[in-house]
Simulated assay, not measured.
Amino acid sequence: MSEVRLPVETRSEFGKGAARRTRRAGKIPAVLYGHGSDPKHLSLPAVEFARAVRENGQNAVLTLDVAGSKSELALTKTIASHPIKNYIEHVDLLLVKRGEKVTVSVPLSVTGTAAAGTLVNQEVMEVEIEAEALHIPEQLEISVEEVEAGTQITAAEVALPRGVTLQADPETLVVNITEPAGEMTEEGGEGETAEEGGEESAES
């Protein structure tokens, strides 16, 4: 997982008016908390933060260069965006330390080509794991190469890197390999037609 360095500033003004002024200045209001410390109110550079999330994902480790203080390591906990205008309104950051294990959700990527005449249904897009803060995998891959219809892959069967443990329910259905619905409908339709034909013959 990538580590991104961001210059940040502390905030001394709070409330909706102060938040609007922060955003007008090209920054994002944020709160850094964790390890029992008092929350720190910060402002993040909007363009740089958005680029970090876009290029490295929400689990990117952020090195926060706090003006007038020592650098802090953090993970993005939540991002609040405007429902209509789609800009970032506020960010919650979680303080972490090198070597510390954290629980995060990681995207799943299905690779390979299943057996002919099958349909691959990805039931969940991400899964919760525990990993060292500086070694969070960017994604977890699930191979469906030549997998036959009727196969169901659960969270317990997802391959995890060394040092990573699953936190999601192991029985969670992740990928379901089925036959195309069209074929099943066609078969059902043929059976119904034959049955109707039988009724008509009986009546005649």
Rank of each mutant, 00 (worst) to 15 (best):
L6F: 09
D169L: 08
E200W: 11
P39Y: 04
T113G: 02
V4W: 04
L64V: 09
A168F: 08
M184L: 15
S43L: 08
L64M: 07
T151M: 09
E126F: 11
E132F: 04
A133C: 08
S109L: 14
L73M: 04
T154K: 13
A52E: 01
S71T: 12
E190P: 03
A116Y: 07
A131Q: 04
T22H: 01
P137I: 06
F49S: 09
E130H: 08
A19K: 01
S12D: 09
M1P: 03
G197T: 10
A116H: 04
K16V: 10
E192I: 15
G117I: 04
L73Y: 11
L73C: 04
E132P: 01
G182S: 15
T154F: 15
T118I: 06
G34A: 01
I84Q: 11
Q139R: 15
K77Y: 14
I129V: 14
A149L: 10
E146R: 13
L108V: 03
R51N: 07
I79L: 12
V47P: 00
L119Q: 13
A80S: 13
R23G: 00
T113P: 00
N176P: 09
L173C: 08
A114L: 04
V102G: 02
L6I: 03
L95S: 14
A50M: 01
P39V: 03
S81K: 05
E157I: 11
T22G: 01
Q58Y: 02
P7I: 05
A80C: 10
T178R: 14
E123C: 12
G198R: 13
G150T: 03
A168S: 15
G57K: 00
V174P: 11
I84K: 02
T113W: 08
S105E: 14
R21Q: 01
E130D: 01
H135K: 15
G26N: 00
S37E: 15
T118R: 01
L94K: 08
Q152K: 15
Y87T: 05
I136H: 09
A155M: 10
P137S: 07
V127D: 07
S143H: 01
E132W: 00
Q139S: 15
E171P: 05
V174T: 13
A155C: 04
T63K: 00
A181M: 12
D65E: 15
A133H: 07
V158N: 08
S71L: 07
R162K: 14
S69H: 14
A30V: 02
A114M: 02
V8Q: 09
E148N: 12
V8T: 05
G17R: 02
A80T: 12
H35D: 02
A149G: 12
E132T: 07
T103N: 08
A25S: 08
R24M: 13
L6E: 03
T22P: 03
L44M: 06
L32K: 06
G26E: 05
S109V: 15
E48Q: 03
E138M: 00
E171Y: 11
E89G: 01
S12E: 12
E55R: 00
A194C: 06
S105H: 09
N121W: 00
L166W: 10
E203G: 07
A46I: 05
